[in-house]
């Protein structure tokens, strides 16, 4: 289905009625799973992701064991922290068969999934303090329940939230978001608007990139662009994307603080030293 690009120029509204700089609804929860070390659930529009973190745990048994080791090797891709002294971040992404509109079965060696896994793994191991957990494994398993664009961004955000829930020391939030650009013809190239947070339909038609930043800084730690785009537009897209990441970071921060406040109120955790005067708005 071709995207009706002329409509955008008339009202400056996108197919789902957003303006160029608007995010879709982001809804997140942490500690969704009592049995796991850390867990989260994240919705970005209609993209729905669940994440379960196990660890940091001893990695020896898995690598030495015959079946377990093979499974770990095939499913997860250890990106960063492969040095012996650091924790290894193993990510496995499962795209549920029912997640897209048409059911598509993707094998475990699907190249797209492998790339997602290694991107997430290297992004997180640069933010997590892996040196604090020597010779251990942090295994992150992500389940995609529904896909509607911005998949990598949603996976990164969900993994960040689950790692926070698991209490793994980390530098800051890894907040991710996508940005695109409206299609134009060469004559009015300067009129092309950058778009924030693309949905599936826009991803199919328009050039786009996924960007992740570290907390509120402008430090970009993931930048994935798989489509052709004019160099002149890249700067605008990146600026919009980084700006979106800050919004996403604020939303995630609110979720974490809200959960923390509720756990304190319920008495699920003890108030730490120096927390009395902390501002728990």
């Amino acid at each position: 289905m071709p995207l009706d690009t002329s409509a955008y120029n008339l009202a400056l509204l996108r197919v789902d009625g957003r303006r160029w700089n608007e995010l879709r609804r982001i809804h997140a929860q942490i500690r969704t799973q009592p049995a796991a070390d850390g867990s989260s659930y994240l919705e970005m529009g209609h993209t729905k992701v669940m994440c379960v973190v196990t660890g940091p745990s001893e990695s020896g048994a898995r690598r030495v064991g015959t079946t377990g080791g093979a499974a770990a090797g095939a499913l997860g891709s250890g990106g960063g922290g492969s040095r012996d002294g650091d924790a290894e971040v193993v990510v496995s992404v499962v795209l549920a068969g029912f997640s897209s509109v048409d059911r598509k079965r993707r094998g475990r060696n699907d190249k797209g999934i492998l790339e997602l896994q290694s991107t997430i793994s290297s992004a997180l191991s640069s933010s997590l303090h892996t040196h604090l957990y020597p010779r251990s494994t942090i295994s992150i398993s992500l389940h995609v329940l529904s896909q509607d664009g911005s998949l990598l961004a949603a996976l990164l955000n969900a993994a960040t939230l689950a790692c926070i829930d698991a209490g793994i020391a980390m530098t800051d939030y890894v907040a991710a978001c996508t940005a695109g650009s409206t299609s134009t013809y060469a004559a009015n190239d300067e009129k092309a608007d950058p778009l924030l947070d693309m949905n599936h339909q826009e991803e199919q038609e328009l050039p786009g990139l996924t960007v992740a930043t570290l907390g509120q800084s402008d430090r970009v730690i993931v930048l994935v662009c798989e489509s052709r785009v004019q160099v002149s537009r890249l700067e605008g897209m990146l600026a919009v994307g980084v700006d979106g990441c800050k919004q996403v970071r604020d939303i995630m921060d609110k979720v974490v603080r809200e959960k923390g406040r509720r756990m304190l109120e319920e008495g699920a955790i003890e108030k730490g030293v120096g927390l009395e005067d902390m501002d728990l708005d």
Binding site: V52, A71, A74, L75, V94, R105, R108
Partner: peptide, 8 residues
């Protein structure tokens, strides 16, 4: 189809 995390 059955998917169990950690198992092929």
């Amino acid at each position: 189809s059955v998917e169990i995390p950690g198992y092929r």
